Simulated assay, not measured.
Amino acid sequence: MERSEYRFIVDRMLGRLISWLRIFGYDTKSALELDPSPKEDTMLIEIALGEGRILVSRDRVLVNRAKKAGVQAVLMYSDDVRDQLEALMQHYGLDIDPNMTRCTVCNSTLREAGPSDFENIKKHEEVPEHLLKNGTLFWICDRCGKVYWQGSHWRNILRTAEEVKNNHQNI
């Protein structure tokens, strides 16, 4: 399987990992998007099978059940998202260069904002006004309306990605 084809489904114990996989451009579904149910584990396995997704979980029983059902599954041992990303890099050789292709909220693909989008962007309270004036590049999720830009948080994202890559190379 090629890197760009990796698709994940992640259990509710790994909420931060979901956002990071989306930041790196991976199609990632979350158990947090499902209605809580006593049959959630079965639902996760069925989704993984039906959609060809890799199941990622901290639940050993779930991972074993998934593997018996023919699902690719990875058990996470650490609570730290950097360790989790390193584990996935080790298993699948993930490319963890951040990009603006997936919405971290709803997993939809993002599109670059055009001139016709700026009136709507101005209405978003989280977008600082000075960014609208200085030619900042924006991306928009057409599904949930979230607006993205490479602000000061982007440096933290790049730093974290670099740390994970460096740690992975030292393994």
Results as ranks from 00 to 15, higher is better:
141 C>H: 06
88 L>G: 06
133 K>C: 03
120 N>M: 11
17 L>D: 01
28 T>D: 04
133 K>R: 13
64 N>D: 14
39 K>V: 10
39 K>N: 11
70 G>Q: 03
87 A>G: 04
143 R>S: 11
71 V>I: 10
12 R>D: 14
69 A>W: 14
84 Q>N: 10
6 Y>A: 02
16 R>A: 07
170 N>W: 05
158 L>I: 13
151 G>R: 09
22 R>V: 02
141 C>I: 05
93 G>A: 02
164 V>D: 02
24 F>E: 09
101 T>S: 11
56 V>P: 05
34 L>T: 06
163 E>A: 14
171 I>P: 03
165 K>Q: 08
95 D>T: 04
32 L>C: 01
14 L>W: 03
56 V>C: 02
37 S>K: 05
15 G>F: 13
60 R>V: 07
144 C>P: 12
131 L>G: 00
7 R>E: 03
52 G>Q: 08
17 L>P: 02
55 L>C: 02
26 Y>L: 07
48 A>C: 06
4 S>A: 11
32 L>A: 08
30 S>L: 08
131 L>S: 03
156 N>P: 00
161 A>S: 14
153 H>R: 09
71 V>H: 04
46 E>V: 11
139 W>E: 06
139 W>C: 00
11 D>I: 00
132 L>T: 01
171 I>W: 10
53 R>H: 02
52 G>R: 02
84 Q>R: 09
37 S>H: 14
61 V>F: 13
11 D>V: 01
119 E>G: 12
147 V>T: 12
122 K>F: 03
122 K>H: 14
108 S>E: 14
5 E>Q: 15
36 P>V: 04
28 T>W: 13
76 M>K: 07
